[in-house]
Design a protein around this nucleic acid. Structure first.
Lengths: 413, 413
DNA sequence: GGCTTTTTTTCGAGCCTCAAAAAAATAGTG
DNA sequence: CACTATTTTTTTGAGGCTCGAAAAAAAGCC
């Protein structure tokens, strides 16, 4: 079962601890690191000396004259941006974007591209993805050797090993092992991540106080997705990437869902469902893509007049509230972040949503549940991919992977 | 956030590892322990020498002539039964039971008692619990000082700190801080555990291969409860003990539930709900207690004729399947153990249950979901409490708690 | 310039784990 | 019964890691 702690693991773990402390805190001094990690000053001193010597950390000379205090001034430690780089690929509906990020987390290059994901044949879709990555990697300003990891994010279901896209709403294609493809093509370790999970990862980094142990990120867009963090860790199932929140059954035999079943939450709360309902179309009407601009216009109209548009949002709220209620019945209430176009219309959704939650077992706490909204999911997804890739690198640089440590130490004389 | 590993933690953790390996394996040799923990033989040798010297482990002289092999025969290591003892208290409907268990996990004394939990006033209920514990602790055969922990299990909701019973179906009383009461009364560390969680813990010990990382224990009794294990650890929420599976809303505005709301899963699948439905009573009828014998008779009748009894079980299956489907939509399918009287009637429940699951998002895998049944919940709950208490002791004996180590070492000359 | 304060580094001690060798305990073999 | 082969357990020495205390470094203060 769980394995004992070997003696050499100790240093490895404490190195990880120091790197992670620096990544979180920005420019902590050695003393601060000692305080947060609970390790002694001498240990921190020794480890950080190693890390600096290996080119992973740098002493930030930017000795900004902080509150002039007595005593020897603290020397901030920072991640060396040149220690490594990671590449993120985000594939979403009709849109492909790539970014190169340095070890300190700064975007150093990016490229975006429109493409018709819904109709592209398999080879072409894969080809475009590979091509855009290749262009970024061939950038003369970039030291290709420093790119240590690729994280690709996609809307849809990925396998639990983070290797392949199993199914996605943005394409009829299924089972594309993007991670393996990227690895064989570029020789760089890669993973295939679910978009909602990456949103959750990004939230954890953006606001660690609020999003710490248990929280939920819900994507309100064309489809409804969820990223679930339990006990501070992303919860991914044993089979696939994560919770099919959008496909919980709200009304058995109800409205037609994009997935082919009936009555799913998404069939009431997805963009197409709200649109369908607002336009008084049949619940059996085939789901269609609705642009973000159209959705925003719909929300405006719903706020203006109490017509079918407002009713559509109300029903969406009801469905979402139902799903959240079930979730809270199983797992305790936790902060919820609503992300995506419809999050901008959360004012229209919230009343019915809270009402629905209040009727469920978790409902006792329904008043105390707090919602954040973030209308733009793409930056979050990219941020999550970047952080995921960077933390992987953090763990490879100090890990037994000798080659990783060697390449990181390239700055050493 | 997470704290660094101090140097002395290493030994502590590896000691824990060894103790846990022995508890799991029964009578492993040092070589086996080395293999399962991944630590070197010398380390295991050193640690086990310590543990033996402190009276925590013993070399089992019962050198049962295993497969006669060449070479120096292995010496089995076992937990020293006298190293400590724990006490379990299980309070269920009209029934109170206490057991004293030695460090090796054997029951060395027990006592059971009927009492009218539903009508007892607060003082009396608490008094009876304290009295039965006191009687056991005053047993002249027992070295009171060796009792290192009390674990109390109860049907109902406990707080997430495992200190108090917040609400229980077995009594109208609420908010009884049993753990604190036991601690102040007897000076022994105590916890207040939820019955379904303890069932899950027990299953994990009974069949670790089957119930390892993710699984679900569902109590089908008067009420419906759930114990959820995720990533090998009991999942307990931030507020209360765990999932209110039984109170997920199956049919909004539907049958009257014991909790006062309508349409809960329990209002279709609890004993009283099945009874109500089988007897063609109104769905608004006040929930009543149904004895186990009556429930068994009901199941017999349902098997004999296709009447309202069979339909009642079918509807119970539907409600349970609905709840499980939602659960599987959020969290991947996992083995399910059905525990309690109605688990003995699972043959009547299963078809409708599977059908309901198949209609949900997690339903793809519905065929592969496996169910175990265990009609008797009490032994499981007691076993879970015992294991929980014992693992606490495991962690206190080696932990910095110097006094714990000292008292465990009482056998030393 | 000397003193105080705070941070960082250095150094020796104490543990812990590991690998290798030694010791122990038994089965097979003639 | 003596001897060898085999396997488990213990011992031993080496190497590393962390810690606490002391020293060194780097500022502000007077």
């Amino acid at each position: 079962m769980s394995v004992g702690i070997r003696h050499d693991d100790l240093r490895r773990r404490n190195r990880a601890m120091v790197i992670s402390a620096v990544r979180r805190a920005g420019q902590p001094s050695r003393t601060e690191i000692a305080a947060t990690t609970g390790l002694s000053h001498s240990t921190i001193s020794a480890i950080s000396a190693d890390l600096i010597q290996e080119g992973i950390l740098t002493e930030s000379k930017a000795n900004e004259p902080t509150a002039l205090k007595r005593g020897r001034p603290q020397i901030g430690l920072a991640l060396n941006p040149e220690a490594a780089a990671v590449l993120t690929v985000v594939l979403s509906l009709n849109f492909l974007s790539v970014a190169v990020i340095d070890y300190a987390g700064q975007v150093i290059a990016e490229e975006q591209q429109r493409l018709d994901t819904l109709v592209m044949p398999r080879d072409e879709l894969i080809g475009e993805c590979m091509a855009i990555v290749r262009r970024r990697l061939q950038d003369p300003d970039l030291d290709v050797g420093s790119v240590a990891r690729i994280a690709m994010g996609i809307q849809g279901i990925t396998d639990s090993q983070a290797r392949a896209m199993l199914w996605s709403p943005i394409t009829p294609l299924t089972d594309i092992p993007f991670a393996d493809m990227l690895e064989t093509e570029f020789g760089i370790p890669a993973t295939m991540e679910n978009d909602c999970n990456m949103m959750a990862v990004a939230l954890q980094w953006r606001d660690p106080d609020r999003y710490r142990d248990n929280f939920i990120a819900i994507l309100l867009s064309h489809g409804i997705g969820m990223g679930l963090v339990l006990k501070g860790e992303l919860f991914t199932g044993t089979h696939s990437s994560g919770g099919e929140f959008g496909h919980m059954i709200h009304r058995p035999g109800g409205a037609l869902c994009r997935c082919g079943r009936r009555g799913c939450v998404e069939a009431y709360a997805g963009n197409y469902a709200i649109w369908r309902s607002a336009k008084k179309m049949s619940e059996d009407a085939e789901p269609v893509d609705v642009g973000d601009a159209d959705m925003r216009a719909l929300a405006v109209k719903a706020r203006e007049t109490d017509g079918p548009e407002r009713e559509a949002y109300r029903r969406a709220g009801e469905a979402l509230g139902f799903g959240l209620g079930s979730l809270f019945a199983l797992i305790d209430p936790a902060p919820v972040a609503m992300v995506g176009v419809s999050a901008a219309a959360f004012d229209l959704i919230e009343p019915a949503l809270r009402e629905a939650i209040a009727q469920t077992a978790g409902g006792q706490h329904s008043k105390s549940i707090s919602f954040d909204t973030e209308p733009n999911e793409l930056p979050l997804i990219r941020e999550g991919c970047a952080m995921r890739a960077l933390t992987f690198v953090d763990q490879e640089i100090f890990a037994p992977g000798v080659q990783a440590r060697a390449s990181a130490g390239k700055n050493v004389a």
